[in-house]
């Protein structure tokens, strides 16, 4: 069956030959084993309700269509459930490929503001979901626990460690507020 809508041909004027190598280095070493069977997309609960198409992203990546891959909002609809990884007959590990493409997207400035905020929370508190209200401490007391658990919420030196690590990997710069976000 064909779509009634006319589809323009894929433009391959400037394929980025480096993109596949970048993905392989960044955590998706098996991407070139893909033979486009579509088991990944057929197994994908995100693909069942959104336009996220694992097979399509992998195909685009193999064609060197870097910009299309890293700028696609649906790149962030994968819940990393690994069902595709468990079913892929070619051991492409599609989940790891998606995560690698996300790493490259973030490097190139494609990061949602909400994601940036979660990352900043870890640098500020040591936790993505912090003990940031007194009511959370009260909830702990209500169940018979000490108000502050023995994690980074109690030990500020742990937060300092995380900040040092982030400085070393330049993660702090990667997730800091950019000027245009501060309006």
């Amino acid at each position: 069956m064909t779509s009634a809508e006319e589809k323009p041909p894929i433009v391959l004027d400037e394929p980025d030959r480096e993109f596949v190598e970048m993905i392989k280095r960044t955590g998706g070493p098996n991407i070139q084993s893909c033979y486009q069977c579509g088991t990944c997309s057929g197994s994908c609960p995100a693909g069942a309700r959104t336009n996220f198409l694992v097979r399509g992203i992998i195909r685009k990546a193999l064609l060197g269509m870097k910009q299309e891959c890293i700028s696609a909002p649906e790149l962030w609809y994968c819940t990393t459930c690994y069902t595709c990884t468990d079913r892929c007959p070619q051991d492409v590990k599609p989940t790891d490929v998606i995560k690698a493409i996300r790493n490259i997207a973030v490097q190139e400035g494609y990061m949602l503001q909400n994601h940036q905020k979660v990352a900043q929370k870890v640098l500020e508190t040591g936790h993505a979901v912090p003990l940031d209200k007194e009511s959370w401490q009260k909830l702990r007391e209500k169940v018979g626990l000490e108000p502050i658990p023995p994690n980074a919420s109690r030990f500020p030196e742990a937060i300092a460690d995380v900040v040092k690590i982030a400085k070393k990997t330049h993660f702090d710069k990667l997730v800091e507020d950019k000027d245009e976000d501060e309006e």
């Binding site: 995560k99 790493n103 990352a119 742990a158 937060i159 993660f171």
Partner: peptide
């Protein structure tokens, strides 16, 4: 107790942002 343990950090979140970090 694991004193001073931090966020794991979330695999699908931080693993998606920057693998080394």
């Amino acid at each position: 107790d694991m004193e001073g343990a931090t966020c794991c950090p979330a695999p699908g979140v931080f693993g998606s942002f920057e693998r080394i970090t």
